[in-house]
């Protein structure tokens, strides 16, 4: 299905250019999928707690929605923020369909743990190594809205403006959410009788 001329056409294009190309040539959408499938699957797993199979089903729905709505993308927004927003919405839709609170399958990696530990350390009284050992357990207990904002900030490494675009909330609200999420994180630590 993939041919060299298509690769020449789509390879090394920006996301925004790929959108234009995908609207003209369906096959170019393949490159958008390839760019984002791993990132989005990890994101779904981290914020939802769905099984891998369920997460892949959600991801498939996400890409179909992205394709259907390609014409609604406008470049006031980063393409990545737009696809993360669609993913976030699709995960919420799936919570509703399943009528279940997300269970955990955090599978946090070192990058996330390092980022979070480093940020918490700036507060001056949390041991980074200790956080690494216990963070997964704590994240499982957190409210989904707090967990998601921490994942976006420290694992996806999104800035406030991008998180604002993904969650469709004002920047001030995002800042408040992150601050509360960090407090919530610390409280969960304390609840589990872990000394900070």
């Amino acid at each position: 299905m993939r041919n060299d001329s298509l690769t020449d056409l789509c390879f090394q294009k920006t996301d925004e250019e790929l959108v234009v190309l995908a609207l003209e040539n369906q096959d170019c959408f393949l490159y958008i999928v390839e760019r984002y499938e791993k990132k989005l699957l990890s994101y779904i797993l981290r914020i939802s707690g769905f099984s891998k199979e369920d997460a892949e089903d959600v991801l498939q729905e996400v890409f179909v929605k992205i394709y259907i709505n390609l014409n609604s993308f406008d470049d006031n927004l980063k393409f990545s923020s737009w696809v993360y927003r669609i993913t976030h919405n699709e995960v919420i839709n799936n919570y509703r369909k399943k009528k279940a609170r997300p269970q955990s399958a955090m599978n946090l990696d070192d990058e996330f743990l390092n980022n979070l530990a480093s940020d918490m350390r700036t507060d001056g009284h949390i041991d980074a190594h200790y956080i690494r050992e216990n963070v997964e357990k704590v994240m499982e207990k957190m409210e989904p809205k707090y967990r998601e904002v921490l994942v976006l900030r420290f694992w996806e490494d999104k800035d406030y403006s991008e998180i604002s675009d993904i969650l469709k909330k004002p920047m001030g609200t995002v800042a408040t959410l992150i601050s509360r999420a960090k407090k919530n994180f610390q409280q969960e630590f304390e609840k589990q009788d872990i000394n900070l």
Binding site: M1, L23, Q26, D27, F29, L30, V33, E34, E37, K38, L41, E56, L59, Q60, F63, V64, Y67, I68, N69, L70, N71, S72
Partner: peptide, 27 residues
């Protein structure tokens, strides 16, 4: 992912003849 996920998506789009909604609809 073991299977070629991107190809699978593209096939789904083609098989089910999924089309992007018109720009005018969003406008």
């Amino acid at each position: 992912m073991e299977k070629d996920f991107s190809q699978e998506i593209l096939e789904k789009i083609k098989t089910e003849q999924i089309k992007p909604k018109s720009r005018w609809l969003f406008v």
